[in-house]
Amino acid sequence: MPIYAFECAACGHAFDRLQKLSDADPVQCPACGEPQVRRQVTAPQFRLSGGGWYETDFKKDGDKKRNLAGDGGAKPAESKPAESKPAEKKADPPAKA
């Protein structure tokens, strides 16, 4: 269940409440009893950091686990020299008679 932050517009009392998504927000302030409680917009309490997402969920024991954000420990591909292609010849515009 998520934790929601609320604030009373009448007295400024701020409080948190653990409730289901389907539960109704509180109407009355627990400090002053006024019906002016509003839900606040807050930042999440966790941060995803690190080298990226790992492909570890739903893997079998024999499957290779790799990092989805990075190279996954794979060997770098050998660089091949760019092959030079001959320039395509443009067709001459038709002659006007």
Rank of each mutant, 00 (worst) to 15 (best):
P2R: 08
I3T: 10
Y4A: 04
Y4F: 15
Y4T: 08
A5R: 03
F6D: 00
F6G: 00
E7Q: 09
C8I: 01
C8V: 12
A9R: 13
A10P: 15
C11R: 06
D16K: 14
L18T: 10
L18D: 07
A24Q: 04
A24P: 00
D25P: 07
V27C: 11
E34P: 05
P35K: 01
Q36M: 04
Q36E: 08
R38P: 01
R38I: 10
A43Y: 10
P44F: 01
S49K: 09
G51R: 06
G52Q: 01
G52R: 02
Y54T: 12
Y54N: 13
Y54Q: 13
E55S: 15
E55D: 14
E55I: 07
E55G: 04
K60E: 15
D63C: 00
D63E: 15
K65N: 09
A69G: 05
A69Y: 05
D71W: 12
P76C: 06
P76S: 02
E78Y: 09
E78M: 06
A82N: 09
A82D: 10
S84W: 00
S84P: 00
S84C: 05
E88W: 05
K89Q: 03
K90G: 05
A91T: 10
D92P: 11
P94A: 10
A97D: 07
A97P: 14
